[in-house]
Design a protein around this nucleic acid. Sequence first.
DNA 1: CAAGTATCCCCCGAAGTGGGGGATTTATGA
DNA 2: TCATAAATCCCCCACTTCGGGGGATACTTG
Lengths: 209, 209
Amino acid sequence: MNTRNIKVSIIEDDETIRHGYSFLIGETEGYEVVSAYSSYEDAARKIALDKPEVILLDIELPGTNGIDAIPKLKKLVPQAYILILTVYESEKQIFNALSNGASGYLTKNTPSARIIESIKEVKDGGGPMSINIAKLVIRSFQKNQESPLSKRETQILEMIRDGKNRTQIARELFIDPETVRSHVKNIYVKLDVNSRADAIKTARENKLI
Amino acid sequence: MNTRNIKVSIIEDDETIRHGYSFLIGETEGYEVVSAYSSYEDAARKIALDKPEVILLDIELPGTNGIDAIPKLKKLVPQAYILILTVYESEKQIFNALSNGASGYLTKNTPSARIIESIKEVKDGGGPMSINIAKLVIRSFQKNQESPLSKRETQILEMIRDGKNRTQIARELFIDPETVRSHVKNIYVKLDVNSRADAIKTARENKLI
DNA sequence: CAAGTATCCCCCGAAGTGGGGGATTTATGA
DNA sequence: TCATAAATCCCCCACTTCGGGGGATACTTG
């Protein structure tokens, strides 16, 4: 039954890889490759008509790169899920892709069977991630266990990160604004900074908050 | 060979589940259950001597709950990886667990084989997540696609979130501080707030940043 | 008992904040 | 074509915050 096939579109500049995926997915029962492009620019013109349910998107594209292509593709084909398939595992790239609207992230060394499975997963609303990506994501949540900051200092720094000022922090913690100020001073000394922005930056870099 | 077994400790208050896991893991080749406790308090006294490599931790524990137990366990058994195994999928709970130092998060409906596999994964430094958790995590990264804020406004709000002030933002964007101010005013109107802290809060709640 | 933590107090000048009121240009869409 | 949104810049003003100094006290912990 053709109508029940999952319609997949591929955007990947390497011809060999593109053909490889096309073949792999096209030959799998229940899946159908509706189109394959070598760049976002090529895809932009026609992809809306293809009505894919899942778009396999390479990050390293000529012209508009994959990250920037995500929101544009989302506008062109709002109902499509975007699955990133790339060789690199750059933390920033992954988070940018996900926050730009990608539904999943797989590395190219992912076994074929897992790719096929992942297409189904995204289509069903699941969120596929290769194990290395999951590891990265988990690490991104983990705070540094040996923080130089005390609990109170960490707490206050987190409130500063939330844009709160002395008065607001003091009110929420039932302490004097001057006490907040003391803590902030100590935070600055420990992190060797002298502004809120730098404190947040340094703390983020060291996963203290 | 006993020495090559992965040493697992279980902390779970439900006796049936605890015994179930103990049996499951104990009977699997390459795995060894070194201890099983029904609460953190029980575990705290002896778990350091068990020297587990992976700790299976339930969240809903009597006394110290699982989330709070994580950093304590990390102190007692620094080399151990903690794998959360729970029925609930509360977003906050998951993120708290991960940021407290858990290495993975699985729901209890996870098939036995996947649990066994996950224990090996954490031990090898991977990051196991059940599909629903992965979905949640991915969603947590995704920004709201139909933001009321313009690109510039979003960009400026993100800089405010980073603790930057007008002057710093203006300098970085090569625009006048007064322009930044205008954008901020517009952000406030759109989000119906009148302070940086509230703007950040509202924007976060709606995933605009 | 020293070190760290948490709490509070003072002075100070410089800067930032938010509420008002505008303006212009460019682009987009109805 | 005309309205709307976006992005840029300008003024006035009261008030607060910020960060650099200088302290103090109390409690805990190693």
